[in-house]
């Protein structure tokens, strides 16, 4: 029977194929279970992709003249909200591959920039960037590196390190030295036209900071010596501030 031969060949190839060990990613289902004390129920990778997109967007445009000057200096950036279809043209993004296994990458080109997102090993996190106190420590955290390139020249424009844990996301962006002056201003957060947005001023390490809520997501951004920091989470703002406050000082 020729059907038998076909069956044997399908088995020969498929049964010999190694099954990836990381099909069940730790934390893959994080966010799907109900933990009402900390966050509302949400749908896994869609939310994760939305968080990544928000961070992508907020760093896309960093015009000068948008900084909130504090008494101690230019520590805090102001986040300006722009609505798609009203303040900026509707964005057209290619879907990101998600979720990623460790070592895998996904990329998209937005506004002339190629953004490459790679899931990294935990030990790859730069030693000089502060990490939050995780509870439980570590296991459910996932690390990503996002690199932005000029799509036409291939020149590296910035590198962002992100850690995602328990509904929070913390990222640090670094620019090549010397830091381009156009990156010194605040960022724009582009949101869909009908998004509910709220802005608050909070105190972060003794400095005023602008926090923006888009939907269920709160974001706070600040500036450090050679880049910018951003923390976000689908939690009440006071919880997010406490997490940000728990970060060790930048070295």
């Amino acid at each position: 029977m020729n059907e038998q031969a076909l069956s044997q060949e399908l088995h020969r190839v498929a049964d010999a194929a190694p099954v990836p060990a990381d099909l069940f990613l730790p934390g893959l289902l994080e966010g799907l279970g109900a933990r009402p004390a900390l966050r509302r129920r949400r749908s896994g990778w869609l939310v994760a992709a939305a968080v990544a997109a928000a961070v992508l967007l907020i760093f896309l445009v960093t015009p000068p003249g948008n900084r909130l000057v504090s008494a101690a200096g230019d520590l805090v950036l102001r986040i300006t909200v722009k609505r798609e279809g009203t303040d900026v043209p509707k964005q057209d993004y290619a879907p990101l591959r998600w979720p990623l296994a460790i070592g895998e990458s996904t990329d998209q080109v937005v506004n002339g920039r190629k953004m490459v997102l790679t899931r990294m090993h935990r030990q790859d996190w730069p030693a000089d960037l502060p990490l939050p106190a995780l509870n439980p420590p570590g296991d459910l955290a996932t690390i990503y590196r996002q690199q932005g390139f000029d799509a036409s020249t291939g020149k590296l424009l910035f590198t962002t390190w992100e850690i995602h844990w328990d509904g929070f996301q913390l990222s640090y962006r670094r620019y090549p030295k010397p830091r381009p002056p156009e990156t010194m201003g605040g960022g724009y957060l582009v949101v869909p036209a009908n998004s509910e947005v709220q802005e608050e001023t909070v105190t972060l390490k003794g400095q005023p900071a602008t926090a923006v809520r888009a939907g269920e997501l709160w974001l706070i951004q600040w500036q450090h010596a050679d880049g910018a920091g951003l923390i976000s989470g689908r939690v009440d703002l006071d919880i997010l501030v406490k997490v940000a406050e728990s970060l060790p000082e930048l070295k």
Binding site: A14, D15, V19, P20, L23, L28, R97
Partner: peptide, 28 residues
């Protein structure tokens, strides 16, 4: 169920990366 699901996805897609994506989506 993961191994059998991965293998059938592999035969449909003939692509290991996509087969992994399919199983992870099925997990969710």
């Amino acid at each position: 169920c993961l191994g059998p699901a991965y293998r059938v996805a592999l035969l449909i897609l003939l692509d290991r990366d996509l087969a992994r994506d399919a199983v992870q989506e099925a997990l969710l």
